[in-house]
Design a protein around this nucleic acid. Structure first.
Length: 310
DNA sequence: GATTGTGAAACAATTACCTCA
DNA sequence: TTTGAGGTAATTGTTTCACAA
């Protein structure tokens, strides 16, 4: 499916152009619709404002979820955008929100019964006024509790995607405006953003998992190498004359600020006891010089580095 | 100021529909 | 034509937060 590829990032630079003043937003929306999205199937586009401003400047987002905030700090898993042609050519264009509603009745509905479910959903979740303006989904008014699933058109998905790129959460007015612009119900916009956040998070988890897997492999390899080194050193130790020729023992010192451990040689310097045989290549014969620092907590350090944190 | 109840929003988990190979 | 898999819209229950009493 194409969604697999473009689901995490579409590269068109559409902007939602409603103004900062919330009172003005609704008035301007229709104008915008006509200007940018002449593809509505059932409803003809209405008017829309000309103004185009940065989404972040236009909206004051209220992101109350700490998890959302933290997830934003993660790796940007948004992939490079697909070629625009993938978007334009769309004869299967599936679906206007109204046109592809399935008439198949949902099994859950059969199990659970009737329209109470819908009522609960719209009242207790969407917050009454948001979803009350009647829309594409379930707008039959027949009270049927069937779970009608529509597929968003590519254009709708595109706009949602662009909006999501600007910010992954909407306040009620933004949701309302976007829904109006896309000829969707606010609840649908809300659900889309919710599912989109979930997909992003899932993708992020996969990326993290992959990275940790690589880290694990690297550490395993490093461990193998060090064990081999230890064995070699032990072998050297068994041979007295070799042992006499070895470098001073290594000590670890921790830097309190960066929490890194520096490997250094001490001034253990009874030169008479120094071995004359060849020391291992990775031992520094130069004496007390600081060698490669090793993070105390390599996982945290690597993750921080991975996520671009200090 | 601390506590409690409530509503709204977000989330995780899940269901179920739709499309395609 | 049928079928199974994958994607995703939609639902459900829970958690978190803000706010008023």
């Amino acid at each position: 499916m194409s969604e697999k590829d473009d689901g995490l990032g579409l590269g068109l630079s559409l902007k939602l152009g409603w103004g900062e003043n919330d009172d003005d937003n609704n008035n301007n929306l229709n104008h915008h619709q006509q200007q940018q999205y002449p593809f509505y199937v059932h409803k003809p586009p209405q008017s829309v404002p000309n103004q185009r401003a940065s989404f972040n400047n236009l909206f004051h987002f209220h992101d109350r979820s700490s998890e959302t905030r933290s997830f934003l700090r993660g790796i940007d898993v948004n992939l490079p955008p697909p070629p625009p042609s993938a978007v334009v050519d769309d004869e299967n264009a599936v679906s206007s929100p109204n046109s592809t509603i399935s008439s198949i009745s949902g099994k859950r509905s059969e199990r659970e019964g009737n329209g109470d479910e819908n009522e609960r959903t719209s009242s207790s979740r969407g917050g009454g006024s948001d979803d009350d303006d009647g829309g594409a989904c379930g707008g039959d008014g027949d009270g049927e509790a069937s779970r009608k699933k529509l597929r968003l058109s590519k254009e709708q998905a595109l706009v949602l995607e662009e909006t999501f790129k600007e910010h992954n959460s909407l306040n009620p007015k933004q949701k309302q405006a976007l829904a109006k612009q896309l000829n969707l119900m606010p609840r649908q916009v809300e659900v889309w953003f919710q599912n989109r956040r979930a997909r992003t998070k899932l993708k992020q988890t996969e990326v993290d998992c992959e990275y940790l897997k690589n880290c694990c492999e690297n550490l395993t390899e490093e461990n193998r190498r060090l064990q081999k080194e230890v064995q070699e050193l032990r072998a050297l130790k068994l041979s007295p004359q070799l042992y006499m020729n070895m470098n001073p023992p290594t000590t670890l010192t921790m830097c309190p600020s960066c929490e890194r451990v520096a490997v250094s040689s001490t001034s253990f310097s009874s030169s008479a006891t120094m071995p004359s045989a060849l020391p291992p290549a990775n031992l520094n014969p130069a004496g007390p010089t600081i060698q490669r620092p090793v993070p105390v907590n390599p996982w945290a350090a690597m993750l921080n580095q991975h996520r671009g944190r200090p």
